[in-house]
Design a protein around this nucleic acid. Structure first.
Lengths: 339, 339
DNA sequence: CCATTTTATGGGAATGTTCCCATTTTAATA
DNA sequence: TATTAAAATGGGAACATTCCCATAAAATGG
């Protein structure tokens, strides 16, 4: 179906050289006469020679491909991580293959297989909210293919991780709510198999403790991050005999969805109930009122994860160290807490 | 660095078979005794055999990889297209590699090279807003690698394309504005190297013509889709002696940005100026007031493009037909036009 | 029970590179 | 000028698979 591609052998024949020499010229090996190199390079250019990566991969046992597993695509979060990672990676001559699992564990497993089959040289992973079993990822480590987790990590695996300081971010979010005079602060938390949920919840507890505000478990709801549920839980909270006067949501989409419900009930934000999110999605400054949130250095996370991975790729497996990089967060105050 | 992978040869030796037979058993060739097949499959499973795609690719001259070039990642549009394409493609055993160019022509060219180097079996393309030269894409066609354009297409290339009915969508958008009583309808248009800009502009003209509204060229501004410019142009429009009473924006981000400016000037939407966008981004129903817009079947676009591409891959090059699929749009009426 | 067909297996070329180990050419040194 | 070192090139194995052709084994038919 495809037309014949010109090969190193063809060039060699034409120029009366051996394929070894041509290969050397093409790959920039020092042991080639300048004259010969020029000849080969010119001919390659002229004849539109394209290296056959299949053959190169086969002999070098490398794909120059790095895989990235993302749980979803529709918030701006993961695309930004990808851009960050891509920048780092491409500057080192690697390419990125992206697979998104749409928050489905099964799809994630299948995507991991695809990455394995394509023999990626390394893998960046953020798991789905459903993922509780990590066998499909351990397989990579066993095979000597390095993995780096970012954002949603598996704490039990001994591999490098890039996370933000969720605990601290949550702490400062809640502290901010307390400082503006709120007393009954609800928390719409994430599923507790995700470590970010747990860390953010702990930050919430810590802030309450520091300011001597009693914890009311009634105000803490863990949910599975599906938007349909938010409405139910927020209504539940607002229907309590003593409803909350503030809400700290696990992430921005949750906060935004919550705000829709709150507004529909005719409550004022932030006077009746202040709202704070997490991540600083693009949306958060466009909605009305704009959303106070905890910003993360999202591009930087992608870059850092990629950097760690590239290091592993270059390092012998016996020297791999499971470093965890924790990135700082920033409180971005907007109208949803300060009217 | 990596531990030794078990190969077909290893299996053959262990089971006292030839590699031909093992290969046949593994690939499901009919000419293998059931007993032998079972033996091989079991052994492969047990020994955690992984096929070496490099070798397979080399001999079959196929990568099973499909590339997709996207100009950006941060609106929900392209991620949705990708999801649509991925669904179609993976169901046929292909994998997707994604490259985003951040609206940079140079990056697009470089990404195209990467795709070529990775020997994708086909390419889905939506060009950047800067792209005027298509040489980097023609190269694929010359090599016999099929291309399908989606959304932002090159009209001069004889390859299949998937577009939406921009003309019709724009027509209905403007018609809607006219029907709610607007007379001075501005159009913030896209750069005229993009055919979607031209088609949408033509739809705008046609609607005005149909309802006998004189065209005022002062109200039509083409711009390069960088958000910083929107502010300038909207302010310019609003400062006109006879300012517009409605705005049809080339896309939702533009419309949303425009609305920020309009609101800041204390004008009411839609009473003083109605606004309509294009694409039905997720944002458009979350902002205040919610944005009337033209919805596109985005997932479907990705699916359709992928389907066309898969067909080309299976078809001899001599039979390739440059079909253009035009998808319908839908007017979604929200608060920014009907208060 | 032998000839013939069908079914199952083996051998080996081919895919396009890289890279090691010769070998040849050129340059440097005595 | 002969000797040695350095630089440049060539030959061929190796990478893991597929697939064609040949051969062997089993089944079928008269």
């Amino acid at each position: 179906m495809k037309s014949h591609q010109i090969t190193i052998k063809d060039i060699a024949k034409q120029l009366n050289l051996s394929k070894s020499t041509v290969s050397r010229a093409l790959t920039g090996h020092p042991m080639v006469k300048e004259e010969t190199r020029k000849l080969v390079l010119e001919f390659a250019e002229k004849s539109d020679y394209q290296k056959n990566s299949f053959a190169i991969n086969l002999v070098t046992q490398k794909s120059n491909l790095i895989g990235i597993l993302v749980p979803e695509f529709l918030s701006t979060y993961f695309p930004k991580v990808i851009i960050g990672a891509q920048n780092k990676i491409s500057s080192e001559g690697y390419n990125l293959i992206i697979a998104q699992s749409n928050e489905s564990y099964e799809t994630e497993v299948s995507n991991a297989r695809v990455m394995m089959a394509n023999q990626v040289d390394g893998l960046l992973v953020s798991v789905t909210k459903e993922t509780r079993n990590f066998e499909h990822l351990m397989a990579f480590k066993r095979k000597g293919i390095p993995i780096v987790f970012y954002n949603r990590v598996c704490e039990d695996m001994d591999v490098p991780k890039v996370v933000v300081d969720d605990y601290d971010g949550a702490f400062r979010a809640v502290e901010h709510l307390i400082k503006i005079g709120k007393k009954r602060i609800a928390h719409l938390a994430g599923p507790d198999n995700l470590s970010i949920s747990r860390r953010r919840l702990n930050g919430y507890y810590a802030a309450l403790r520091k300011y001597n505000i009693p914890v009311d478990e009634e105000l803490i709801i863990s949910y599975d991050l599906t938007m349909e549920k938010v409405k139910i839980y927020i209504n539940h909270l607002l229907n309590l005999p003593k409803p909350p006067d503030a809400l700290f949501a696990i992430n921005d989409p949750t906060a935004i969805e919550a705000m829709q419900v709150i507004k529909k009930r005719g409550l004022r934000i932030p006077e009746d109930i202040a709202v704070i999110g997490f991540s600083n999605d693009q949306l958060s400054e466009l909605i009305e009122p704009s959303l106070t949130t905890i910003a993360q250095p999202v591009y930087k996370i992608g870059e850092t994860a990629a950097e760690l991975l590239l290091n592993l790729i270059k390092t012998d497996i016996s020297l791999w160290k499971p470093i965890t990089k924790t990135m700082p967060t920033e409180l971005v105050i907007r109208k949803s807490t300060i009217g």
